[in-house]
Amino acid sequence: MKNKVIIITLVFVAGFLGLVYYAIMHSRGIPVKIEKIETPVLAVPFIDTRIDLSKDISLNTWDTLSGKEIKLMYQVMVLPWPKAVVPSVLVKAFRTQEDIYFYVSWKDDTEDRTHAMNQFSDACAIMFPLGKEAQPSSIMMGFIGKTNIWHWKASQDNEYWQGAHPKTDAYADFYYPFEEKELFVVSKQTPQSAVSDLLAIRVGTVTSKEANAIQGRGFWKDGAWNVVFKRPLKAENIEEDTGFELGKKRLCAFAAWNGSKDDRGGRKSISDWVELDIK
């Protein structure tokens, strides 16, 4: 009898402890298995080729390089909600003795090179965290710390390379990520490049740098954009310019805007960090 009672007791206790264990494991909701996402590594090999962006972007050169398909997600925003995400960008990079080149390509059914009232330009950007410790996620451009952003815009490309003038003198740069507080820059300068070299330290701080050493150019072909960025390897100002040290890894993130889907300012698709392996 005694053994039987002890066994029954143990069964009840074990059953209860099992329930308690299950409840503890579920006490903050149903556990979700989170797969650890490996940070993609983009190789930046040395190639002794110089691209003259005033002529073209040398697609033949890029075809010889293997790239990385980087997944994008929509920028987290309170409102407005996104209309369409750019699912991914294909990125490639190489360096020469003097310069570093990036190639960004993504599918886009429409070539939106014009910036006007309710008409927005396609664009893409590369963000580099400045300082030694980057936050674990890119979240949004400049949200989490000091960053250097290379922002190519199709409209600016049009203006810089083709000499086209904007349809209207009224101009909005949509730097501020919240649509209801978009900043309208009333005195627009003539672009020094198709790419804006920007700095940001938190939300609402995106600022154009005075000196711009970055060049870029984009072509829309067969329903896709092909954009190339070029900058001297050596940083002019280590406080504000991204440094590229050979043999060392560096983080960056990519973003793309689809103008025909009303993307502008903070409304964009962004990637998580990508690691550059500069050889």
């Binding site: 009672v5 007791t9 209860f16």
Partner: peptide, 10 residues
């Protein structure tokens, strides 16, 4: 409840 069962057993 568990205690009620165990005490009833003993």
């Amino acid at each position: 409840i568990l205690l009620a069962i165990i005490v009833a057993l003993f």
